[in-house]
């Protein structure tokens, strides 16, 4: 029993420190550098350690140190308890959701590369991830600031709207592979169709993948759906009154959110850690597979960033319109088509 707890604890710490915090920090650099390169600028390159700038990779560290030493400002009329509690509430759920993400195949019969392969499977992920909206809403409400409140209202209405579309886009995948357990879904995707085509989710559910990507961008509140924190309208939306590490928690939760939906998309649509035509228990195979999973996550992150620096922000009524009038009907259509095809197939 103690051994199990210790192993789970070690996995959590590793996941938290190495992958999430490190990943989120690096993503903040990626975002800045990538936007710069896309826009023919140079981007962050000044922070140096002993004269080495390492493409500006020290900037996240510098930012972190700066955030730590900033004044933690609290508005006089803010609801203190909720104000302190909200960043935690928005930061923890995406972290928790990672428990259901497998980073690699089972090794020696045990899930070393996954925190918990529970029976709830991906439902757990969906359930936990959607708690994050409370953090944002409460942050906006407790700040006693009209911009924050507007941001909070937009967050809640947008996130609730797209939650439906997101879930609908996943149902098709669950139906095709007949399970909600991540490792089982990856196992289903590892098979080949007609002997040569990998049975990945993107092949079996192309429309589902597009709907998932759209909904996930909206769920992470990024352009063109970044209405909750539209800088030109709402200063910084729900996080307007936040400073210091509390602001950093919102900031990091956004990047953890990107990692989460990218990992989620990789598991469901890109075959997870699967490399077609490669199987086995050898240590180098496992290593390659973990690398393949990270590469797939990276590719999806790249796609999200590219969209964010390509498409301008939509109007808020258009965002909600799009969610209800296009995303959900298409999701239902996809569900119906999948059901018909599966029925005929069998």
């Amino acid at each position: 029993m103690l051994e199990l707890v210790l192993i789970a604890f070690a996995k959590c710490v590793f996941l938290f420190l190495a992958f999430l915090l490190g990943g989120a920090a690096i993503l903040s650099w990626v975002e800045r550098k990538m936007s710069a390169v896309i826009q023919d600028r140079i981007g962050p390159n000044r922070a140096a350690v002993f004269g080495f700038t390492a493409f500006g990779l020290f900037h996240p560290i510098a930012d972190g140190i700066k955030m730590l030493f900033k004044e933690d400002f609290v508005p006089a009329r803010a609801d203190k308890i909720l104000f302190f509690f909200a960043p935690v509430l928005s930061f923890v759920p995406p972290l928790l959701a990672f428990m259901a993400i497998p980073f690699g195949p089972p090794v020696a019969g045990r899930e070393w590369l996954m925190v918990s392969d529970s029976q709830m499977g991906l439902l757990f992920l969906l359930a936990v991830a959607s708690i994050g909206v409370y953090g944002h809403t409460l942050a906006g409400w407790s700040s006693d600031n009209k911009f924050s409140l507007m941001g909070a209202l937009r967050t809640s209405s947008q996130l609730f709207s797209y939650e439906v579309g997101l879930t609908l886009s996943l149902l098709g995948v669950f139906m095709v592979y007949g399970t909600i357990m991540p490792q089982a879904i990856i196992g289903g995707q590892s098979e080949l169709m007609w002997g040569w085509l990998p049975r990945w989710g993107i092949v079996t559910q192309p429309l589902g993948f597009i709907l998932f990507m759209l909904a996930s961008i909206a769920e992470t509140k990024r352009a063109p759906f970044d209405l909750p924190e539209a800088d030109s309208e709402l200063v910084a939306g729900y996080s307007t009154e936040y400073s210091s590490m509390r602001f950093a928690m919102f900031f990091l939760s956004e990047f953890v959110g990107i990692l989460l939906v990218s990992a989620f998309g990789a598991v469901l649509f890109l075959g997870g850690w699967n490399i077609p035509f490669l199987a086995g228990d050898a240590w180098w195979v496992v290593l390659l597979q973990v690398g393949a999973f990270l590469a797939k996550v990276g590719a999806l992150v790249y796609l999200q960033m590219l969209v964010r620096w390509t498409v301008p922000r939509m109007r808020f009524d258009q965002v909600i319109d799009f969610g209800w009038k296009y995303l959900i009907p298409f999701g239902l259509l996809n569900l119906l088509a999948t059901a018909v095809v599966l029925a005929v197939w069998r």
Binding site: M34, V37, I38, Q39, D40, L306, V307, W309, T310, V311
Partner: peptide
């Protein structure tokens, strides 16, 4: 949308 993505993508790789 796709054309836009191709443009930004082109800039990214060329400048990278």
């Amino acid at each position: 949308l796709v054309r836009g993505l191709i443009t930004t993508n082109r800039h990214f790789w060329r400048n990278w």
